[in-house]
């Protein structure tokens, strides 16, 4: 047999598609699917959160309480606790009556902080109590946490975390390797959601301050003191805010003062002193 050398000119083993076009198409598809999934899950989580009844929420709250605070120094009695409770009661709105009864505790912890968990358990640290100078500040902090509770933010966060964790588990079982940027961008989007919640709670609290005291002066003092501690990094501030769960203190204050001006709240007034401890 004879050999006839001929050249194969057509590149049959390579699909003639421009790499950038290919990349663009893939990125577009994944981004669209990702956004749809994220929004869908967010809505699903919120739906689950609002469907859980008050009894179930109280039980969930007990489990979280046990899990987080069984080992911690929780103060449930004493004159300080009584004062906090009566202050919190005076801040109740009508809508709050439909939620499980909020319970206030003091946490023996030097770092100033306040938090709320499902079931309406609100914690204020001894560090915070030592730091504040007027009743207005304390009332603002309590009202902010009550705002989270009334809006069911605790349940929403719980729902979202559960849903995202499940999705991660499914992907792990399937052995799917996500490109590194995907997980990063999901976290960023989630942080935006958290900052949104914080701002809503801030406005809620400020409204209660205006109603109770007739002005919002001194309520934000705590945050203004914080800004003196925080470094001013100029433009880098924006980058830091982008990656945190709370809006930056300075922008927080500015935003709230702008809202106060828009709604015609009084910016000046007399402070209310704390009772002697």
């Amino acid at each position: 047999m004879k050999y006839t050398p001929r050249e194969i000119v057509d590149e049959v083993n390579v699909t003639p598609v421009h790499p950038l076009v290919n990349f663009g198409y893939l990125l577009g598809t994944v981004a669209a699917a990702g956004i749809a999934l994220y929004v869908g899950l967010g809505v699903a989580a919120a739906q689950i959160a609002t469907r859980i009844g008050p009894n179930a929420e109280v039980r969930v709250g007990e489990v979280v309480f046990e899990g987080l605070f069984s080992e911690a120094d929780v103060i449930q009695e004493g004159s300080q606790v009584k004062y906090l409770r009566s202050l919190a009661e005076s801040l109740h709105t009508d809508a709050l009556a439909q939620r499980p009864e909020p319970q206030i505790y003091i946490l023996d912890e030097p770092i100033p902080n306040a938090m709320v968990i499902p079931g309406g358990h609100i914690f204020v640290t001894t560090g915070l109590l030592a730091d504040i100078e007027t009743e207005n500040e304390l009332a603002f902090v309590l009202a902010h946490e009550l705002g989270h509770h009334e809006n069911r933010d605790t349940l929403r966060s719980l729902g979202r975390t559960l849903v995202f964790l499940s999705l991660n588990s499914f992907l792990a079982i399937g052995g799917v390797q996500l490109p590194p940027m995907l997980t990063g961008s999901v976290s960023l989007a989630d942080l935006h959601y958290s900052r949104d919640q914080e701002q809503k709670a801030d406005v809620y609290a400020l409204e209660i301050m205006q109603e109770r005291y007739g002005h919002i002066d001194y309520s934000l003092d705590f945050f203004e003191r914080l800004t003196e501690y925080e470094l001013d990094l100029g433009v880098a501030n924006q980058l830091i805010e982008w990656q945190s769960t709370h809006p930056l203190t300075e922008s927080r204050i500015e935003h709230l003062e702008a809202i106060a001006v828009r709604r015609g709240w009084a910016l000046e007034g007399e402070p209310t002193a704390l009772p002697d401890q």
């Binding site: 004879k2 050999y3 006839t4 194969i8 399937g174 799917v176």
Partner: peptide, 20 residues
């Protein structure tokens, strides 16, 4: 007559749903 080696190849991936 013979013309030498011919080859055909393709590389495929299945999408994430089927992977899971």
């Amino acid at each position: 007559e013979h013309y030498g080696l011919v080859q055909g190849s393709t590389i495929r991936a299945k999408h994430v749903g089927k992977d899971i």
